[in-house]
């Protein structure tokens, strides 16, 4: 029980630091405040998690960027937003009038790819600076599809090896433009020893 509580404290700590850093980076990128509206880490059955996503009524098209982080604490990162929000994000990043981008094109693809890359790297920096754990990102993969399909492809690699997975979920709200985006962080099975390491070093005495 004591070990479980330490592990959940370690995950909570990683989640808080990562989400804080990601939100700062997103705000800086778009030069507008991004508020964290949800932040949670939980264990879930993969079938239940995907069924819940599939059952969401708002299944509009989304554009997502997936990044695999390899190293001592490997994890998978997904940033996504619905299509209208991605068009706004593209105009913000390109520093032009909001409303100019009207459809999914190469600029939108590149913008979402870049946001995914930068935010995932921000999470990696937390591991490096706060826990001395080196990580390396793989090139982001951009997917433009149904939310259910994007989420399914995101969990595929981990779900093949386990029935239950740990998910760190966070939502950001860009108040000025009414843009909602979501990030998911999915630790790979090999992350267990790193989480234990954090428990035994950083949370010593708690």
């Amino acid at each position: 029980m004591e070990k479980d509580s330490k592990i959940s404290k370690a995950v909570e700590l990683i989640a808080q630091l990562s989400v804080d850093r990601a939100s700062q980076v997103l705000s800086k990128l778009i030069r507008s405040g991004a508020r964290i509206t949800l932040e949670r880490a939980y264990m879930t059955d993969i079938s239940e998690a995907t069924a819940k996503i599939n059952a969401q009524e708002n299944q509009a098209e989304v554009i997502g960027s997936m990044v695999d982080m390899m190293g001592d604490a490997p994890f998978k990162f997904l940033f996504y937003a619905d299509a209208p929000s991605c068009l706004i994000l593209t105009d913000l990043i390109l520093q032009r009038e909001v409303g100019l981008t009207k459809e999914f094109n190469i600029y939108v693809r590149s913008t979402i790819q870049e946001i995914g890359n930068i935010m995932a790297s921000a999470v990696c920096n937390v591991f490096a600076s706060d826990f001395e754990i080196a990580m390396k990102p793989t090139p982001p993969k951009v997917v433009h599809d149904f939310l259910g399909t994007v989420f399914q492809e995101f969990v595929m690699g981990t779900a093949a090896e386990r029935d239950e997975v740990m998910i760190i979920e966070s939502r950001f709200y860009i108040v000025r433009y009414d843009v909602k985006c979501t990030i998911y962080i999915l630790p790979f099975p090999g992350s267990d020893k790193t989480i234990n390491y954090i428990c035994n070093t950083r949370l010593k005495g708690e």
């Binding site: 993969i46 399914q152 492809e153 779900a159």
Partner: peptide
């Protein structure tokens, strides 16, 4: 409406709609 997640089965009798989203699955 019944939603099926990844790695799952749903069986039922009418009137029911079974729905899911697929990628490589």
């Amino acid at each position: 409406i019944l939603s099926v997640g990844v790695g799952d089965i749903q069986v039922a009798k009418a009137p029911i709609i079974i729905t899911t989203y697929l990628g490589s699955c």
